[in-house]
Design a protein around this nucleic acid. Sequence first.
DNA 1: AGGTATTCACATGAAACTATTCTCTGAGTTAGG
DNA 2: TAACTCAGAGAATAGTTTCATGTGAATACCTGT
Length: 399
Amino acid sequence: MGISNFFENYLKKDSFFVDKSVLLSSYMPEEVIFRENLIQEAANILAPALREEKPSNLFVYGKTGTGKTLSVKYLLRTMKEIAEKNNINIVSIYINCKLKRVADTEYRLIARLIKEFGEEVPATGLPTDEVYNIFYTLLDKKKQVVLLVLDEIDQLTKKIGDEILYNLTRINAELKNSQICLIGISNSLIFSENLDPRVRSSLSEEELIFPPYNALQIQDILRKRGTIAFKEGAVEAGLIEKCAAYAAREHGDVRRAIDLLRVAGELAERAGSQTIPITYLDEAERKVESDRIINATISQPKQFQSVLYALLYVSPQKKNFFTGEIYEVYQGVCRKCRLNVLTQRRVSDILAELDMLGIINAKIISKGRYGRTREISLSLEEGLERRLREVLEKSLGLA
DNA sequence: AGGTATTCACATGAAACTATTCTCTGAGTTAGG
DNA sequence: TAACTCAGAGAATAGTTTCATGTGAATACCTGT
């Protein structure tokens, strides 16, 4: 009874959210503000595609949340509209190379491309060059310009090297009808430095760098989205400013700022408030962070989790630990939950991964005569640490 | 004292291995004509 | 004889092991004063 009452009330209670989707990362605004110049430049580069000529390959650099993906998608969308209106055959394909089990290997990337052309290819079992051949013939069936966007391309090469990129750049030579133009998006500014020179030169014929937004720009963006997302007057004075300041502090990441605003809204709504007070921002920040860590953790394999559990297990007693110490504890954890014990080599890698994910802080230090190791410290909030421990105990089947 | 050589406890890299999931191929089997 | 079945070969992938090499600075060991 209580529950159905709750739902009734929930429906009646009018929310200050008008359109929450505006604050999700999937949202595509009508206009991309503060990026007009860069978009114009990119447009100049890609425009030949409208004349069915191959544009130069383009590379887009910039930190997370600087509007790279959004701008490129926006540009492609407009180009597509124009192309359709004028009966020009342009195919644009957007692929995020980071997506696990979708496009994070050579085989899967090509398989994904084939799928974009409407054919299916099995997830495994076929030799890679077979898949390449299918892709070639598919691509060359009719005359067209293909704009291929590879987002987070640095992740791809980090994982499997730059051979695919080399193959992709060479495709054009083999095609009779079609032309393929690569647009790479990378978070890392130094990405192309450790690339095969041949690939580098042909891949980054043109480059664009997206600088971070400053606090004022972030404010404007937040305000713009806020007015669509919330009812008027829902946002308390200073909220946007503080939210922007938080994000600007971290290299001007707008995505983060928008997340923060949304979560603060959700928290306020849940608390039954009519407006979003500034005070919710801190909690929102904490929630965003802990959700990120919990999610990252539960999607990892058991062995990974037990290493983390070992860390959490000793953390109340000490502040800093070394790899060797953790390995000792980890072995105990494995025995308890009947996992086979991995080598120290592997555990070392797992610790490095935990560092990458920002769950632990690890620094390689030399203790002189007493060797060289990682100095690890756990800097999680009390509440999160407890929650994480519970999650892990459950997942590992510990009482 | 000042200089250098060792040495520790791992880090980091590369290659190879394992288990799983999947395809393709072709031999053997079946059933209908 | 065409259709079907099913085992075996071969791929891709994630996670791991094995082997090999690298490394920063506290200490041990000199050396000449």
